[in-house]
Amino acid sequence: WIARINAAVRAYGLNYSTFINGLKKAGIELDRKILADMAVRDPQAFEQVVNKVKEALQV
């Protein structure tokens, strides 16, 4: 799951650890299995999560 998430978030200019930190700051409580599945099956929803994380990180 970690490898999938890392590959997906790198397309948005983040790395895995920064993304996970941003999830916590944004108050998003999705587990890694769901995030990895979302990255593959629903990229639009995953992009929305990434955008919320970037807002929380102020990137």
Rank of each mutant, 00 (worst) to 15 (best):
W1K: 04
W1F: 15
I2E: 09
A3C: 15
A3E: 12
A3N: 08
A3Y: 04
A3G: 08
A3W: 04
A3L: 04
R4H: 05
I5M: 04
I5C: 01
A7M: 10
A7D: 14
A8M: 04
A8V: 03
V9Q: 00
V9M: 04
R10N: 08
R10E: 10
R10K: 14
A11C: 05
A11R: 11
Y12M: 03
Y12Q: 03
Y12H: 05
Y12I: 02
G13C: 06
L14R: 00
N15T: 13
N15D: 06
Y16V: 04
Y16P: 03
S17F: 14
S17W: 15
T18F: 03
T18H: 06
F19Q: 00
F19C: 01
F19H: 00
I20F: 11
I20W: 10
N21C: 12
G22F: 03
L23G: 02
L23V: 07
K24R: 08
K24V: 10
K24G: 11
K25H: 11
K25I: 11
A26R: 03
A26K: 03
A26M: 07
A26F: 03
A26P: 01
G27R: 09
G27W: 05
G27T: 06
I28D: 02
I28N: 03
E29V: 14
E29Y: 15
E29L: 14
E29W: 12
L30W: 07
L30T: 14
L30H: 05
D31T: 14
D31C: 09
R32W: 12
R32H: 14
K33P: 11
K33E: 15
K33V: 07
I34Q: 06
I34L: 11
I34K: 11
I34V: 07
L35G: 01
L35F: 06
A36P: 05
A36E: 02
A36S: 06
M38F: 05
A39I: 13
A39R: 02
A39Q: 02
A39N: 04
A39Y: 04
V40K: 12
R41K: 11
R41G: 12
R41L: 14
P43Y: 05
P43C: 05
P43M: 06
Q44S: 09
A45F: 07
A45V: 07
F46C: 02
F46N: 00
F46A: 00
F46G: 00
F46K: 00
Q48T: 06
Q48H: 14
Q48C: 09
Q48S: 11
V49Q: 03
V49S: 01
V49L: 11
V49P: 00
V50A: 04
N51G: 10
N51Y: 15
K52R: 14
K52T: 09
K52Q: 09
V53I: 05
V53P: 00
V53M: 04
K54H: 06
K54S: 06
K54Y: 06
E55H: 07
A56C: 06
A56K: 07
A56P: 02
A56V: 12
A56I: 10
L57H: 05
L57C: 04
L57K: 03
L57A: 07
Q58W: 07
Q58L: 11
Q58G: 10
V59N: 10
V59L: 11
